[in-house]
Design a protein around this nucleic acid. Structure first.
Lengths: 244, 244
DNA sequence: CCAAAAGTGTTTTAGTTACACCCATGG
DNA sequence: CCATGGGTGTAACTAAAACACTTTTGG
């Protein structure tokens, strides 16, 4: 075995190589419900099943570039928050051939998510019902436009569970929540995002103070419009000094 | 571009594929100092530079299996705690050809780490000086057996920084610290591991209570031997119900 | 002036830190 | 009986939660 490893070091081109793809878990929070972008497969394997958008990684293309390309080409969405999640490398994960897939997760505010969705026929929004299983993530129940729960193609269900776990884990110590909100937003909207992702009710005054004390929010001086009650202040996310 | 993606879906074998490797960041805490396993490269590129052990992923081998194989073959260590870290996919990260590398980090107790190290000539232990830069990790200074700081081959320095950040981030909410200790250990030994990794001094009574209140520690009833003062109780790590 | 949600002040609680102290052991 | 680190009790501090309350808007 040591012999083989040694040979590989010298001439790796002599060995059969796996294909490498990226798969994209593009999420948002729509009307207080976590949502993910799915595409319906129209060929085997898993024909007519729902799957995450993905694509092969080009030989001269970095993984991050491939993820952004899939985001632009398949999902027709640009400038999302994108982060590498995990790499899935089980031998039999694709029945056709050996494919290693690097999963990326991406976040978009509801308005831009819905806009891109309605502009593109073959895409579909799926609502997520997410039982709390800690940061590691676990099985996630997926409903496409109100229908019954569906099972995703390949190991995409596992990817989705992991993405949801990561989102929950990072929610409170990073700025990911703001990637799900428009540039200007109210504290109530921020709390709605938190409640949707964590699947809990939060105490309003406590939440409010916690957020303001962190110093990440900049009051714009402007107010929300079109309410029949007292309009809330609009805030802007100001990235803290230490990046990410 | 959409056209290309479509074609790839049908016949990916027609496209050139990258090689895929795993690299292993095998860490321990030796005498209160974080340490990592390195190998000296004896061929170009980066000849005579220090690098992480790694190897190509076989076509019929899962990523996790490849990581465990590298652990066994190159590092001659079995049964370590192993966890996937991140996948590095920059196009020019290896000057010879396109190689995508999945980084794994592994943890071993000091005694087993040192035993395997002394049994194998081509391995070397490197001490780490790790400035605190939050969970994301950052540049790490590496010293091989007391010499000056060295720069690792390829992007291995970046991998090491990320591994250290992950270790710090998970230290306090997961059981990773116990992967760095023998089966039976004192509370002082546990605190030493925390202090080495976090690079801080911790308050003894507070640490003690926090650990015991968590319910992860099982008193064995046995005592540490060979001290010239009061011998400390030995504890065992009892995995909590919810895995990881 | 009423409904509805924004926004604030005050108390309670829980978890952590700091510090002082006692205990057990080998020499 | 002394030095050394193990182990414990108590008070102080801090951050968050709970709850009651006041404010501001449109209709």
């Amino acid at each position: 075995m040591d012999e083989t490893t040694h040979l590989e070091r010298y001439d790796p081109s002599a060995f059969e190589r796996p294909s490498v793809t990226v798969d994209l878990i593009l999420m948002s929070v729509i009307d207080g419900v976590p949502a993910v972008l799915l595409m319906r497969r129209d060929e085997a394997p898993f024909a007519a099943r729902w799957a995450l958008p993905g694509g092969f990684v080009g030989i001269g293309e970095s993984l991050d570039d491939a993820a952004r390309r899939v985001l632009a080409d398949k999902a027709h969405m640009a400038d999302a928050y994108v982060e590498q999640l995990y790499t899935f490398g089980a031998v039999e994960r694709d029945p056709r051939m050996r494919i290693i897939s690097v999963a990326y997760f991406a976040l978009l505010p509801a308005d831009r998510f819905v806009a891109a969705l309605t502009a593109t026929a073959e895409l579909s929004l799926a609502e997520l019902t997410v039982p709390w299983r800690g940061e590691t993530g676990g099985p996630v129940e997926v409903r496409v436009s109100g229908d019954d729960a569906v099972t995703l193609a390949f190991d995409h269900g596992e990817m989705l569970g992991l993405a949801m776990g990561r989102l929950r884990g990072k929610l409170d110590y990073s700025g990911v929540a703001f990637a799900l909100l428009p540039e200007r937003f109210t504290l109530r909207a921020l709390q709605d995002v938190y409640e949707a992702i964590l699947d809990t009710r939060l105490n309003k005054p406590a939440f409010r103070r916690r957020m303001l004390d962190r110093g990440w929010l900049q009051p714009t001086g402007e107010r929300e419009a079109g309410t029949s009650f007292r309009p809330a202040e609009l805030y802007r996310y100001r990235m803290p000094q230490e990046e990410q």
